[in-house]
């Protein structure tokens, strides 16, 4: 518990000192955002990302959902996110967060087993926090959503340029940030509705030009599936409009051991080390 407090505290202490954290929600100040998604109760990965974000000078945190599911540290992870929200972070709901309070959410066998296990671990307050998360949040010319913007509660995957186009047509936001698919991607649509798709290169900033719409699929913190086992998050500079995909190596074996020790499906532990 002490560890959690100090970590979240450290991240937030790097915020501009002269303003209160709460004042920044919806503010138009130019800031460096740190955007996390699909944490999936992986404490080691989330802690490594928070620390990497702090070192990069991240001033505000956005979480695109799926805080729980798959991983073995849901209490710590939800508490940490709740703490970040108190200090000004924006969080939206993912399908795993939704499944905690909704028995109708359909999932594969392993995911379902993890959700049932997780449900028993969380306090009533934590479950309520997850159930009450908004589906989408718009801020300035940006939109935050877990799956995609055309029909967020259907949890559709953005796997191709046409999928991305469907989401971008549904919103006026110039930049949509989403997660859900666990593989980083960056799509754009020109004023004549021509699409581009791109697999971002870690640590190379890309300026999201104002002349077109963009959809940034953020890679997963707690269960990367693009073949790179290190945790993924992005930073976005609201002034230069540069997005940077970042990778944070973490103690994969410790996270896998937690999954095995808690009797969760073994595959959920094994896939962490291969990033699939």
């Amino acid at each position: 518990m002490e560890n959690r407090r100090s970590l979240a505290h450290a991240v937030l202490m790097s915020l501009k000192p002269e303003t209160e954290a709460g004042d920044r929600v919806g503010s138009e100040d130019c800031v460096l955002l740190g955007i996390f998604t699909d944490i999936h109760a992986n404490r080691q990965a989330f802690a490594a990302c928070l620390e990497a974000a702090r070192l990069r000078g991240v001033e505000r945190i956005i979480c695109l959902g799926d805080i729980v599911g798959y991983g073995a540290d849901p209490e710590w992870t939800v508490e940490t996110v709740m703490d970040l929200v108190e200090r000004g972070a924006i969080v939206v709901r993912g399908n795993h967060d939704n499944a905690i309070g909704s028995l109708s959410e359909s999932m594969n066998v392993e995911a379902q087993a993890a959700i049932e296990w997780t449900r028993g671990r969380l306090s009533a307050a934590q479950r309520r926090f997850l159930a009450e998360l908004p589906m989408m949040v718009a801020e300035d010319d940006r939109l935050y959503v877990h799956s995609e913007a055309s029909s967020p509660s259907r949890w559709r995957y953005v796997q191709s340029a046409p999928d991305a186009a469907r989401s971008m047509i549904a919103t006026d936001a110039l930049v949509t940030f989403c997660g859900h698919i666990h593989r980083p991607a960056l799509y754009s649509m020109s004023v004549t509705a021509k699409m581009t798709s791109f697999v971002p290169v870690a640590n190379v900033p890309v300026q999201l030009l104002r002349g077109r719409q963009w959809l940034a699929v953020v890679g997963s913190v707690g269960q990367p599936r693009d073949g790179d086992p290190s945790a993924c998050f992005v930073t976005f500079d609201t002034e230069s409009r540069e997005i940077t995909y970042c990778r944070a190596p973490y103690d994969v074996e410790a996270a896998a051991r937690r999954i095995r020790d808690n009797g969760l499906p073994l595959w959920l532990a094994e896939r962490l080390s291969v990033g699939r």
Binding site: S190, K194, T196, S197, F198, V204, V206
Partner: peptide, 10 residues
């Protein structure tokens, strides 16, 4: 090589 190619499908 490290940026989106906007001429891809243009």
């Amino acid at each position: 090589n490290q940026l989106p190619d906007l001429l891809q499908e243009e």
